[in-house]
Every structure is written in C-alpha cells, then in structure tokens.
Amino acid sequence: MSNMALPKLKLIFTLFFLQAFLTSPTSIQAAPANSDIFREYIGAEFNNVKFSDVPINPNVEFHFILSFAIDYDPSGSSPTNGKFNVFWDSDNLSPSQVSSIKSQHSNVKVALSLGGDSVNSGSAYFKPSSIDSWVSNAVSSLTSIIQQYNLDGIDIDYEHFSADPDTFSECIGRLITTLKNNGVISFASIAPFDDDQVQSHYLALWKSYGHLIDYVNFQFYAYDQGTTVSQFINYFKTQSSNYNGGKVLASFSTDGSGGLSPENGFFTACHRLKSEQQLHGIFVWSADDSKKIGFRYEKQSQALLATPR
C-alpha cells in the first residue's frame, strides 16, 4: 500500500465515524436527566398546617402549591367564568406567611393550583362562557391574587369539565402564555390523572401548549391502592410517553387513597428511575395529611432527591 492511500483511508474512516455518530439515536435525542424538584400541595383541608411546619431540605428546589384557587363565587355555589377566588386556608397560608417562608429559605417558591376536585362538597367544573371572556377574567383575577401573595407559578388541576378539550386547551394555553409574557409567573404545571375524560383535555393542552408547561404533576396516586413497584414503573413510562418531552414527576399521597405508597415501595421505584436518569422530581398530596405523621416521607423524598446518583 502506498503512503498516498493512508490519508484517504483516514478521511474515509473519519467521515464514516462522523456519520455514525450524527445518526445515532443518543446524539439526536435529548438525554433524560434527574432533577431535584420537590413539590407539595398545601392548604386544601383547613387543618391549620403552616409552611413552617414542613421540613425543607436546602439541597432541593422546593415548591409549595396552594390548593386551590377556583373560579367560583366565594360561597362555592356557582362558576364565575374565570374570576378566581381563594379557597385555601388563607388564615394559616397568608401573603405575609408566603413572604416569610421565601425569605427564610432561598430554595422555596410558592405556586397556586387552579380547580381541584371539589368545591363546597360538589364537583368543581371548568365552565367557561367563551374562550375570550374566560381568559380575560382569569388573567385579571389571577394576576391580582398572584401579586398579592407574592407567588411564582400556577398549577392546573381541573378534574371536571363542562367544555370540550379544544376549549380547555385554548383557555389554559392562552392563560399560561399571557401570565408568562407579562412576567407574572415563571413556571406552570399540569396535574392530570389516568381517566379518559381528564386525559383527553390535558393531552389536547399538551399538544398545543406543552412547550410552555414546565412540570407534569401526574397523579399516580389515582391508580389503584396496592399498585406494585413494577406497575408504577410501567405507569410512569406510559405517561412519560403521553406527555413526551415533559418533566413528569413521581408522586404519592399521604391520605392513603391509592397508588404506590411509601410503605409499599415508592422509594424503591424512585431509586430505579433515578438510576435510569428519569427521576425529574417528586410531589406529594398533601402537607395537610402529612402533618399527623410528622412529614416523614417529605424528609425521605427530599433526601433522595438531594443525593447525587
């Protein structure tokens, strides 16, 4: 072989290597990554829980989510087309207490959640009169509440609907767009669960506005009680595929309602996800229920998130 042939071979090999690298799946897909986000709903059950009751690990990003702001009249008897009122325990979770917990802990942010399951012992319905009027009212009323309480983000947790998926998508999508563009919020999340009607609404929203949604607080505790570790992992991978590209958070409930409980292997599942670089964070429903057991699982969740792999 002549010396002239060697550079050509090197060039061919280099080109072949580059082509293989550029077309390999790992190079064109964003690698999943673990995150240290811990989020907890608070204030829905009026049992005098305070922000300061909840242990806060300084090595996580901690989000409290006030539950709930609802577009119903203050008595909770009729919908108000986007004019939101505060329905959380505002005596114990007041604007001054928001400011206090944020000043004491630089890693804490506070959000509010919209909707929820019920209001005044009946279901809380998403019921806009029209897209434009609902968005206008929602932007105005929520901006006022968010600024009064010094909040950082919103969570969408409607679970009952008197509007089709496209209307829901446009209303919520335009609301998030406007609040972000106006600098009123810095993040937004959604809280779907595995129910056909619920998923049809949230997946429509995800399809059109998923790029504006920072976290998916998927309610894995809405699955059957007695969920196993392997079932949980399968559910997690299914929903990560449904909300493709989203930060789907692992979740459990401390009210004993369902899903994979900490006692039955939730943290085993989280360690497995973490080893696969798929643990985007953990959220808990809810601080109100955890108070009576001393927030032991909040401590365990945050310790897991704060530990390097």
Results as ranks from 00 to 15, higher is better:
32 P>Q: 12
225 Q>F: 14
209 Y>W: 02
132 D>N: 10
38 F>K: 12
211 H>K: 10
164 D>H: 07
128 P>A: 11
147 Q>R: 15
297 Y>P: 05
41 Y>M: 13
148 Q>N: 13
235 Y>G: 02
95 P>Q: 05
278 Q>R: 14
275 S>D: 03
235 Y>M: 11
55 P>N: 04
296 R>W: 12
194 D>G: 01
80 T>S: 08
182 N>E: 01
247 K>L: 04
185 I>F: 09
275 S>G: 10
247 K>D: 08
24 S>D: 09
166 D>F: 05
60 V>K: 06
11 L>Y: 00
104 Q>W: 04
200 S>N: 04
177 T>M: 08
11 L>A: 03
124 A>T: 07
49 V>C: 09
238 T>M: 11
259 G>M: 06
120 N>C: 08
54 V>I: 12
184 V>F: 09
12 I>L: 09
12 I>H: 13
185 I>A: 08
190 I>F: 10
147 Q>T: 14
148 Q>K: 15
274 K>V: 14
238 T>H: 06
7 P>H: 13
271 H>M: 14
286 S>R: 13
205 L>W: 02
266 F>G: 03
89 D>G: 00
192 P>R: 07
248 V>W: 01
123 S>K: 15
183 G>V: 12
186 S>C: 08
118 S>L: 10
290 S>R: 03
108 V>G: 09
144 S>Y: 10
35 S>G: 12
309 R>W: 06
52 S>T: 13
201 H>R: 10
269 A>Y: 09
194 D>F: 03
132 D>W: 02
223 Y>G: 03
279 L>R: 10
244 N>P: 00
22 L>E: 13
22 L>I: 07
299 K>W: 00
136 S>W: 01
160 H>Q: 06
71 D>P: 08
230 S>M: 14
181 N>V: 06
198 V>R: 04
171 C>V: 15
244 N>W: 00
222 A>D: 15
150 N>W: 08
46 F>V: 07
211 H>C: 15
103 S>Y: 03
258 G>Y: 08
106 S>Q: 15
148 Q>V: 14
134 W>V: 00
36 D>V: 07
164 D>V: 12
117 D>W: 06
200 S>M: 02
237 K>H: 14
152 D>W: 11
153 G>E: 08
306 A>L: 15
301 S>R: 06
149 Y>L: 10
129 S>K: 14
66 L>F: 05
136 S>L: 14
205 L>I: 05
160 H>Y: 02
247 K>W: 11
171 C>Q: 02
3 N>G: 04
52 S>H: 05
198 V>T: 02
140 S>W: 00
103 S>R: 09
233 I>Q: 13
131 I>P: 06
177 T>Q: 15
13 F>I: 13
307 T>M: 07
282 I>K: 02
206 W>S: 02
302 Q>L: 08
160 H>M: 12
101 I>E: 03
300 Q>W: 05
178 T>A: 08
235 Y>C: 01
120 N>H: 05
263 E>V: 12
194 D>V: 08
250 A>D: 08
198 V>Y: 06
23 T>A: 12
123 S>W: 14
104 Q>N: 00
107 N>G: 05
197 Q>Y: 00
111 A>D: 11
295 F>W: 14
129 S>L: 13
76 G>F: 07
206 W>Q: 09
89 D>W: 10
223 Y>I: 02
191 A>N: 15
33 A>I: 11
46 F>N: 09
126 F>P: 01
98 V>K: 09
96 S>P: 05
245 G>D: 01
66 L>P: 04
24 S>Y: 15
303 A>M: 09
145 I>S: 01
141 S>H: 03
24 S>H: 14
142 L>N: 04
